[in-house]
Design a binder for these strands. Structure first.
Lengths: 158, 158
DNA sequence: CGGTGAATATAGCCATGGCTATAATGGGGT
DNA sequence: ACCCCATTATAGCCATGGCTATATTCACCG
């Protein structure tokens, strides 16, 4: 059938790969979409804690562009996931796991954004695109971006 | 020095940007996540049509790694969005708008994947990461990637 | 010490995008 | 011509992540 034809490499024009490989790609992409929200929250909480010493729901909501109850519901989930600790009617704090995830997300974010900047993309676009891209960058790609960034810096200012 | 910047991002307290700017970033990222599924479907349908002449629900489901009713429901939505036309118990076809969207998604995908390959990322990782990244790449960044790709080719085989 | 306003908690709604189970249908083989 | 079965349609469930409206609680000030 069509599948058998598509599975023959010699008859396969570039772009259509085996169904199993296709599945793996899409499953990974969906996983990235799922973890993206969590990473956004944790990273933002870390930023707020570092910058102002407190992470209140209203601040999180204001920066994410969502309503406060949305933040409250998500914080419950983050608490279940052992990423934050909440004291009622007070701000949230990150657990050790939360700080770890925040640090990784932040590093990833920074590398992606710096890399986009090194390509000549405007600061605002780099920020926006990095926000979406960072959750889909594997460690291998991240390493490649970091290497390219190093080469760029070495070549630009030796 | 470049290593230091890339390797120790968490030691640099990121200057917090204004809340409104933050909101714009996250809103764009959420929009990208929303459109990602639609683009995945349309791009895949176009690939199936090009390579086997038909896009059946079972094939779409097998490649996306989802169940057939999930595909059926999504096709209804794509029909409402005027991206596909369905004849009952037959495969789907793309509308003009659908073909247009598929072409744009495919071009975007190709540039991102080729760019990752040019960075030295393995073929499999490039495929997987490109699948997630492509939906979050603005036109400006896409242009920058294309330019860098051209420079890479010129430098590699002049 | 009490009241008031801001922050948080809670309840309940919606759309999206998954799933399973099952019914309806159409095409191909005998 | 007919029946089988692969395919598609439909029904109904769940989790996620948004929202509004409203109740609670805290903190501060008079």
């Amino acid at each position: 059938m069509a599948d058998r034809i598509a599975a023959l490499p010699s008859l396969m024009p570039p772009g259509l790969v085996g169904p199993d490989v296709h599945v793996a790609r899409f499953r990974q992409a969906r996983a990235g979409r799922r973890s993206a929200v969590v990473e956004d929250y944790v990273e933002l909480i870390a930023d707020l804690l570092d910058h102002s010493g407190a992470a209140r729901q209203v601040d999180i909501a204001a920066r994410l562009g969502v309503a406060q109850p949305t933040v409250a519901k998500m914080l419950k989930r983050l608490h279940v996931d052992a990423l934050v600790v909440q004291t009622p009617y007070r701000g949230v704090a990150l657990t050790e796991a939360g700080r770890c995830l925040a640090a990784r997300s932040r590093a990833r974010h920074r590398i992606v954004e710096d890399f986009l900047l090194s390509l000549g993309v405007s600061a605002e676009t780099a920020r926006c695109d990095a926000e979406g891209i960072e959750h889909h960058v594997s460690q291998e790609t991240l390493d490649a971006l970091a290497r390219a960034l190093c080469r760029h810096h070495d070549g630009a200012a030796p």
